[in-house]
């Protein structure tokens, strides 16, 4: 138990991010409601962002804006990647929500199981 404490401190960010990732995965697999599935996808995505940003942090560093008197900066590269990923993520989310609206108009429901039943009846 005592030996596990440095592990906990060193990997706390990673473990929380993995927990969030697993939450997102569970929502996507287990829940049939499509809006809920999209929220789950967003949670999953954000967990990956957290993993990247954690990798870029240096303890005792500052944000990567060059200024007099500072030596250690956080790594800017993960920040750039994640900025792009956030924007692309919201674009895909918009397309997904558009599809949900269309499905709701065509089937009258956004529950996966009801749509499957409708498909079997026809």
């Amino acid at each position: 138990m005592i030996e596990a404490i440095p592990d906990l401190v060193h990997h706390y960010n990673h473990w929380v991010s993995i927990f969030l990732m697993v939450c997102g995965l569970y929502i996507v697999v287990a829940r049939g409601n499509m809006v809920k599935k999209l929220v789950g996808l967003t949670v999953f995505q954000t967990a990956v962002f957290l993993l990247y940003i954690s990798a870029g942090k240096i303890l005792g560093g500052t944000p990567p804006i060059i200024a007099e008197g500072y030596e250690h900066y956080a790594n800017p590269l993960p920040h750039v990647l994640i900025l792009t990923a956030i924007v692309v993520g919201v674009a895909t989310l918009a397309v997904g929500l558009g599809l949900v609206v269309r499905i709701n108009e065509a089937f009258g429901t956004i529950e996966e199981e009801e749509i499957f039943e409708r498909g079997e009846q026809e």
């Binding site: 954000t46 962002f49 940003i53 954690s54 870029g56 942090k57 944000p63 956030i86």
Partner: peptide, 15 residues
Amino acid sequence: VLDAPDVAMTEAAVG
């Protein structure tokens, strides 16, 4: 907190 102010602003505005 993790020294990524640009990402934080984007996430707050977009997310």
